[in-house]
Design a protein around this nucleic acid. Sequence first.
DNA 1: GGTCTTTTTGCCATTTTATTGCATTTTTAC
DNA 2: GTAAAAATGCAATAAAATGGCAAAAAGACC
Lengths: 141, 141
Amino acid sequence: MNDPDFPRRIRDAGGRVTAARVAVLRCLAATEEPLTPDEVLERLAQTAGPVPDRVTIYRAIEWLAAHGLVRQLATVGRAARYEAVEDRETHAHFQCRGCGQTRCLPAPPPPLPPLPIGYVAERVELVIHGLCAACRAGERR
Amino acid sequence: MNDPDFPRRIRDAGGRVTAARVAVLRCLAATEEPLTPDEVLERLAQTAGPVPDRVTIYRAIEWLAAHGLVRQLATVGRAARYEAVEDRETHAHFQCRGCGQTRCLPAPPPPLPPLPIGYVAERVELVIHGLCAACRAGERR
DNA sequence: GGTCTTTTTGCCATTTTATTGCATTTTTAC
DNA sequence: GTAAAAATGCAATAAAATGGCAAAAAGACC
């Protein structure tokens, strides 16, 4: 498991420890599925304490992403989705074309194809497009 | 190689053959890299003939995607990106975190991880996040 | 704890990307 | 050529994200 001391992780990254950053990081770390900024806001709104402004959420996520505590996923939806960076095993992302939901799946790390010269790879992401159980049941067949 | 008879492919998909659909499909098929709707519009604007409205481009892409002639990629950028569906060899997508550009790379098809029951996979996409040669040179090191 | 400096936040306005409604035009079948 | 169905253009609207700036909070120092 990862160190759940979010304030320390933020301080170690060289930033100020603010309520918004801690709340956003905790929210993303506590969630199974990657969330959009608005989904983070919704969840924080249901928690005790003051709710940060939407713009603050965006900026907190931006800062967390720039400092490697959170990462943005490749998605087909309109809104960006983020997940906390944990050192759990590698995983892929399933994305439902029906409801747009994204969820993590355990998966071995895929092989890295050769890149053009001068290019550097920093991360490899496997995205499985398809239909989730609920959406499949909902489609007329 | 693929059949370049775009009107026929559109008719075979069960739709009307319109100038906008043919132009959008041809544009995407003629381009190395996946394009955003606005990039498609830019390119069509530089071509001879009447330029379709932006909304028409959106709707043409939507129709083409719904009928399997075009597909939307998983991206981290703000705008959606599309590529023509060709039966060329499988490929991955490289996405530069500097300039946001997306390009195709030849790559073997990645293994499909097991899915939760009830889920169906329709496509697997491999996304390599990193820096392109130009952006890497631009970053201070 | 009090004071100072720097960073972050909240609010408002704005931009970018995408979607909807509806009258007009185009496509296709006959 | 004509009629029915579908697609388009235009204007308005929605959704997601960003920028500017004054007020507030965090951290460093005493």
